[in-house]
Design a protein around this nucleic acid. Sequence first.
DNA 1: GCGTGTGAAATCGTTCACAGCC
DNA 2: GGCTGTGAACGATTTCACACGC
Lengths: 255, 255
Amino acid sequence: MATGRTHRPATRSRGIPEATVARLPLYLRALTALSERSVPTVSSEELAAAAGVNSAKLRKDFSYLGSYGTRGVGYDVEYLVYQISRELGLTQDWPVVIVGIGNLGAALANYGGFASRGFRVAALIDADPAMAGKPVAGIPVQHTDDLEKIIKDNGVSIGVIATPAGAAQQVCDRLVAAGVTSILNFAPTVLAVPDGVDVRKVDLSIELQILAFHEQRKAGEEAEALIEAEAEAEAAAAKETRKGPDGDVPAVMPA
Amino acid sequence: MATGRTHRPATRSRGIPEATVARLPLYLRALTALSERSVPTVSSEELAAAAGVNSAKLRKDFSYLGSYGTRGVGYDVEYLVYQISRELGLTQDWPVVIVGIGNLGAALANYGGFASRGFRVAALIDADPAMAGKPVAGIPVQHTDDLEKIIKDNGVSIGVIATPAGAAQQVCDRLVAAGVTSILNFAPTVLAVPDGVDVRKVDLSIELQILAFHEQRKAGEEAEALIEAEAEAEAAAAKETRKGPDGDVPAVMPA
DNA sequence: GCGTGTGAAATCGTTCACAGCC
DNA sequence: GGCTGTGAACGATTTCACACGC
């Protein structure tokens, strides 16, 4: 969903696979840790372990960036940190605004991980007039009315939406109209954006639901030989019931 | 990533692709919204639009669950809500503990999206004795010392880690030892877990870095689109502050 | 000898396009 | 006529395995 467009047919050699891009921050984190411990070089095997991937994947990923390693030796930590940072665009400073300073917005504003990479929280914006002027993480909250001016004055191109779901699309529209072209969305809503705008979403409850799926599966496996056809039978039976004019639906979960 | 299992050779029909599982919560959300508006049926086209995917993918996804639609008509909303909920394991109640009640932990505790699906925050745990007893989101925070007891008393199998990175592995080990088999990790660390334990991670700064990559790319394309060489020269002249793309081995970025 | 870099193979995921059923 | 369900084509990603340079 994020990054649907490849509006540019023959965008030459800069073709780094999306899956690789998504792992670069992981490598960068592991490398930064090594760098802080003054480790000079690292092998693909070691770095892969630190990043939680396998070494073949890591080497393939790095091969898209260039030949930055030394055969028989490994990778120079500092050099790789720089190369990946550059590739990710972190050698420049990205001013970011956070819209929606509730619990989550405040947590984001306080999150150290932003500042330590190339990100700078340029402004906090909230619709509640009572919030205006209150400092959160040392930054005074500003009112939504001034959103456009804030974006333009600060040259912001990345926005973070941490509002309730109901407000997200409207906020998004205003951000985009004001010039924002990348959005990180924490609201549980699908955002519609024009071509050329990237949206990435983080949905806390979706992650839990995926875990629940696997958790349920584990429980089922424990019961091994026992259950085999229950779900199947139930589905079949349910489908049978609903052959009638108006579908008979089994007990639905609490909304 | 940390879902290495699937040591189950046979078992035919239960093979739902991971990519599909990851989208089921999305469909469920869209369907729940339709359900609340009392929409009785929906076509793959409409539902796909609401979920932000294309209709072919959605139909393929649903085909893994079974034949739950009606040709020429579409899908029964209530029925699908039930089927997806069941598939995801949301027809049962999942007690969850949140460890690390800082800004983020508090935000999670207050997050309505958990309770509305099958999740129940069974306990909040923090290492700070000063937090003990304080209510957050109406739930009193308990001390880490009691972690094992809390897990066992509540039959918790899903844990959320929202501690600083340094504490995450230790917390993880204790959760796992106490019986937790699924972990949602917000700490910027790779967690090592034994086989059979699932970990999903959410890293706020990684998402921003991925956006930055695309943002940088857009800027590059803009320049490219203008006039090849001239745009590049102009950009270099205009902003001499930062050493742009393509450098030899310049100074390393701020750690 | 060691560990990177990379074609080639295998696997996984998406999209196409249309047969089948309402 | 409309819309689902699905093989088959396509594309992306991962894994394998080994040649190559240090």
